[in-house]
Amino acid sequence: MKKNAVGRGERTRPGTTVPRPAPPEPAALAAKVRTMAPSMTRSMQRVAEAVAEDPAACAALTVTALAERTGTSEATVVRTARLLGYPGYRDLRLALAGLAAQQASGAAPSLTTDITVDDPMAEVLAKLTRDERQTLTDTAGALDLGQVEAAVAALAAAPRIDLYGVGASSLVAQDLAQKLLRIGKVTHAHTDPHLAVTGAVQLRAGDVAVAITHSGSTVDVVEPLRAAFDHGATTVAITGRPDGGVTRWADHVLTTSTARESELRPAAMSSRTGQLLVVDCLFVGVAQRTYDTAAPALRASYEALAHRHPSREPR
């Protein structure tokens, strides 16, 4: 049984062996490389970058030939294939052939071009738009809808919801918090790590804690989620690293994708796009499940805000 799909009385603790998920579809390979590359060794990164940038050429190579092309070893190539989600190199080659065919037909995009310091604003806008669109598409493809539905069900029923995030992820946590508050859900977005842990130890069964961390290893986010887990709350991780430490303490893992990081496009920019898509899905799902109470609460919040900003009448 998967760690992040267990029942409330059957939580799988760290160290339990879980089944390997199905290999990613060919079109999702480039996104998988972008997501996993930062956590790879440099030699594994060379293999991953090679297969993502030229899938057609790499699909024709044996494991020995690809190792020679990337200046690595056969063992490194096999480890990279497995880290990307494939049982072995043969399965990776099949995915590469499929991706190459899709790119040749225009059904799958190639990796985007980095923004350069000399790009005119029109080109910057075009590249950002292309990258944002691709990040949304990749995130939608990477999400396990069963996990999303389970997280929505837990949030809809929760008497209290705590959210954890720092840096750019804290903005996403605050965005979800204000949305949930407007439909009557008791929600706290913690940005102070001490208050986050203090609040986490007060959570109980039925409450929900949500950690948002692209790296999956931010200590100030992982620690309160662990405390919430230990005290019986349902835990959710929104992360770009499904192998990150945060998932050890998550009942439900929602994986986001990211565009390739560059000098003028840091990871915080691209990761935020995928995170916002996920939290919007969670909010809409909760609003749907609690519509009888959510709709009146939304109307009340609109009316309250309208009184603070009345329309100006002509003199």
Rank of each mutant, 00 (worst) to 15 (best):
A168P: 05
A168M: 06
S169F: 12
S170M: 11
L171I: 06
V172F: 07
D175P: 01
L176R: 15
A177N: 15
Q178F: 12
L180G: 12
V186C: 09
T187C: 14
T187F: 04
T187R: 11
T187N: 06
H188M: 03
A189H: 10
A189L: 01
H190Q: 06
D192V: 08
D192T: 01
L195N: 14
A196T: 08
V197D: 02
T198R: 09
T198H: 14
G199R: 13
A200H: 14
V201H: 03
Q202N: 14
L203E: 08
R204D: 07
R204F: 00
G206V: 04
V210D: 00
V210E: 02
A211G: 12
I212M: 13
I212C: 10
I212G: 03
T213K: 04
T213G: 03
H214F: 08
H214P: 01
S217M: 06
S217Q: 10
T218I: 08
T218N: 04
D220K: 01
D220F: 00
D220L: 08
V221M: 08
V222K: 00
V222F: 04
V222T: 13
E223Y: 10
E223S: 11
P224E: 10
L225W: 05
L225M: 02
A227Q: 06
A228T: 05
A228K: 03
D230A: 15
A233D: 05
T234A: 11
T235G: 11
V236C: 12
V236M: 02
V236S: 04
A237C: 03
I238H: 02
G240N: 08
D243S: 09
G244E: 05
G245W: 00
G245V: 13
V246K: 01
V246I: 07
T247D: 06
T247G: 04
W249Q: 07
A250K: 02
D251H: 06
D251G: 08
H252W: 00
V253I: 10
V253P: 00
L254N: 09
L254F: 02
T256N: 05
T258K: 10
A259T: 15
A259D: 08
R260F: 03
R260Q: 11
R260D: 07
R260C: 08
E263I: 13
E263N: 13
L264R: 09
L264I: 12
R265D: 13
R265P: 07
R265G: 13
R265W: 12
M269T: 12
M269G: 11
S270P: 13
S270H: 05
S270W: 04
T273G: 01
Q275V: 01
L276Q: 04
V279C: 13
V279S: 02
V279P: 03
C281Q: 13
C281W: 06
L282W: 11
V286S: 08
A287N: 00
Q288Y: 07
Q288W: 01
R289Y: 02
T290D: 14
Y291S: 14
D292E: 14
D292P: 03
D292W: 11
T293Y: 01
R299W: 04
R299N: 06
R299D: 10
A300F: 05
S301Y: 00
S301W: 09
S301M: 05
Y302K: 08
Y302I: 15
A304I: 04
A304M: 07
